[in-house]
Amino acid sequence: MNTEAVKAIYRAEMRRTRNTLLQSIATPVISTALYFVVFGSAIGSRIQSVNDVPYGAFIVPGLMMLSILTQSISNASFGIFFPKFTGTIYEVMSAPISFLEILLGYVGAAATKSMILGVLILITATFFVDLRIAHPFWMLSFFLLTCISFSLFGFIIGLWADNFEKLQLIPSLVITPLVFLGGSFYSIDMLPEFWQKVSLFNPVLYLISGFRWSFFEVSDVSMGFSLAMILLFLLTCIVVVGVMFRTGYKLKP
């Protein structure tokens, strides 16, 4: 195990975050605060509660998920895409380092950033609403699993993308709609029956639902099922990354 290499990549990636502190941390925190003002206060004041949870608090897990998902993907995808784009990847590819170690460095750093971000959003939220976390262990588990698996997913996108457009394609055209339609701001009970059924095909619903259960013990689907879904997603990403590395996909002609 080349631990020095993992540390080197991890440190370099974290340094990149520090250099772009405003973009990496401040932007999502500010936009989350805006969501609270608009959805939590302005609109939320007209919605009494959802499943006995005050609306302002109800949206907190969804908002955290929204940010963690999009930021994990963008951090990890950019982290590997940029060296590919500038050509500096040659150094990583010619170093005595295994694919697993590359993954640990890049995905580890991206997941760490998402965790920091998630915690910051949670702290921001406490300024707006009263929060209780019913199952801290499960909350943390969902939180960590999501950060890791979506950073992994972002890494895959970064490997796959060969231009900036592709880099933005999946986050903006797939992930954002799935998160918004996955019950970030509502319970699917509030939808017409047909759309409830459709929503069940949205994998992000299970994430948000499980995460919300760990806060308020209310959920759209069972918590066990949510956990199974996120583990399945994590496993799929690991398999895909494994295949990509084994074949040298887009990295090694």
């Binding site: 020095e4 290499a5 990549i9 440190r11 370099a12 150094e91 170093a95 005595p96």
Partner: peptide
């Protein structure tokens, strides 16, 4: 930093 990074990549 970038020179240290290279050294790290090579396990030193």
């Amino acid at each position: 930093n970038t020179v240290l990074f290279s050294r790290g990549l090579y396990g030193k």
